[in-house]
Amino acid sequence: MKQDSESIQKMMIILSKGTLENVYAAFVLANGARMEGINADVFFTFFGLEAIHKKKLEHLHVATVGNPAMHIPTMIGGLPGMEALATSMMKKEMEKIDMPDILEFLEILTASGVKLWACKLAMDMFHYKKEDLYEGVEDIITVGDFYNKSQGPGTHILFI
């Protein structure tokens, strides 16, 4: 990779959502950065914390309501079991294209050198503790810490 001042050196990805498609978007972007020789950190805040919460990360769903691209009428999308059905269908498709599940993806990310951070404010709000989180999470940090880690040329911050 080019090391000049115009190239991307580091991706700081903020994940604020806990729906499956958003979590995958953040993970694919972080992993893709590492594959290109770009450093990558993920900062999990608000519902994004679900993706690193040990008891929740294997139960993430796609949203079937309020998502016109799903092509499911809102009334139908809200019926009991619809989210689970849509999620299981999506997971089957993902497996076909070699997409890992959330836990395996976290392992790939940490092995690839992606740093995972949990937002202190959101941790306090949801009453989560460090031991609730996936072991690969580096630390619980403030937004100020996050900005400090974002310093340096060629850093890009991405909010999901």
Binding site: N31, R34, D98, P100, E104, I108, A111, S112, G113
Partner: peptide
């Protein structure tokens, strides 16, 4: 080839590959 596949190869894990 993908990073995931290499991690499962038994030849090298992802950490060592990097």
């Amino acid at each position: 080839l993908s990073i995931r596949r290499i991690g499962k190869s038994g030849v090298v894990d992802i950490k060592e590959f990097y």
